[in-house]
Amino acid sequence: MHPALFFIFGGIALAGAINLLVQRAPIYSALSLVAVMGALAVLFLLLGAEFIAFIQIIVYAGAIMVLFVFVIMLLNADVPEPTRRSKVAQAIGYPVMALLLVELAGFFAAAFGATPVRTGGYLVQVAAVGQALFHEFLLPFEVTSVLFLVGVTGAVLLAARREERHGAAPRATRVHAGVPTRAMAEALSVPPNAMGGAVIEPAPQPESEPAHARAQGDGR
């Protein structure tokens, strides 16, 4: 039973990971990652970690990846155009990575191959996790509160829409790798382009920074 489950869900995880790599649009990569996480949750159950398995589904797949999908939708991220440099890099890189992986797998097989995994041999009760969190792991548990405060503050600081200082409504801009909608431009509140008019081809704009400074004026 256990070997069958391991190979089925390990296979799903593997397929999801390879699909993540192969797919070019980020939304498909994100959804493949969700599949990987689901398969891993089953593997965690096989390894007796029931609390972690459910946290994986609820928090990792259910909150973090949903956030990813929201942002991908918001940015309307689409297939990027490949450059020649990246094709060369891939031609060299994939074989090197495959070689390293084979080495690593061989190493693990030799070092840890002797220990069998018995399903049900070690089961972690949720109560035990709770006890550990408040006894042995009290300090890390409390310190993560600072981590969350940093995360929340940082996210709001960087991404929140601030009131427009120029008084002009945001114009629609085209994200280079996709077609935006007016709703998206408003949601991002992209500041009006200093060159005026709708942007057709957003070439790299090293001039945008001083132009921006002039547009901002001193009234900030």
């Binding site: 593997l14 797998a105 693990f108 840890f112 220990t115």
Partner: peptide, 23 residues
Amino acid sequence: IPLSYYLILSAILFCIGVAGFFF
């Protein structure tokens, strides 16, 4: 299933992630 199977799967996922980061 020996322990190494789980670890090899973990290594494969890790390396695919590294490949994705670069490519």
